[in-house]
Design a protein around this nucleic acid. Sequence first.
DNA 1: TTTGGTTAGTTGTTAAAACAACTATATGTC
DNA 2: GACATATAGTTGTTTTAACAACTAACCAAA
Lengths: 146, 146
Amino acid sequence: MSNNQFKKSELYSFITGVASTAIARRLQKKFNQADLSLTIEQWSVLYHLWKEDGISQQDLCKATFRDKPSMTRLVDNLEKAGMVRRIHSKADRRKNLIFLTERAKEMQDTCYSFAEETVEEALSGVSNDKIEVCKEVLKIVYENLR
Amino acid sequence: MSNNQFKKSELYSFITGVASTAIARRLQKKFNQADLSLTIEQWSVLYHLWKEDGISQQDLCKATFRDKPSMTRLVDNLEKAGMVRRIHSKADRRKNLIFLTERAKEMQDTCYSFAEETVEEALSGVSNDKIEVCKEVLKIVYENLR
DNA sequence: TTTGGTTAGTTGTTAAAACAACTATATGTC
DNA sequence: GACATATAGTTGTTTTAACAACTAACCAAA
């Protein structure tokens, strides 16, 4: 049975995401040291808004892989911190469209550098081929479980 | 520059651990459906106790990659739920040794099956070679960031 | 044996995750 | 238009994460 070898070995790290936890903590530390007062979860929301501003909370849920209550509170906190604004959609009054403030727009480059730096530290010594394999597998996992 | 291709692509999933989040949620769902009333975080503690019973909270911190306050509360909740007991170490009175109750011991096989099932669902369609590459990369990441 | 540093664990606080229950708006069907 | 159903977002509750500050016990050096 081709799968048997795997079964007995480390399922633990696949389930608990030790590696991604380590990466997230490292990035959080960089944010803190730079006095950015931004959580990784907040960053994950901004990440998508930097790509496309003014999308709905529901869009952000799908993009960040979080549920609606989590997003409500993330947006609450981002709004309190002056990084986004909720604007009621005129086309669909159920929707809030989320817009970046100037302050948040200015943070994009800094945050991107920290993220890039972190991922490069994490993956130092790993060949591009292997990184590609990982990305591929992560994508399959994500789709298998959706 | 050999790294350039990677830089511009998805760092997001590496940092946020979307795949491991999906796996953990799937396993949690299986626990819930079986009325196990066990969180993934609690499971991650039991996982190590099933391998070696009676280790200290500090040992569990290292094994589960969590900090001391988190472990205090995880053990609190596991104790409340009747799954572990704290026993003061006689050799070193600072230490609590954590022991599984009979009830928790009986849960091992069930939980293991669910975990194995989940990982197999997650990785269905992924060749063993690629799984090995992933495991290798996760390990390197973990060590790069320690 | 006293001092100073280290290790093990706890407590307090804020942010987030997961789930259920809820309101409000939109949409499709008769 | 009226109804059922689906979608968008909020609120309440419990558990966990991360960090700082703390107590207690251990250990090593003077």
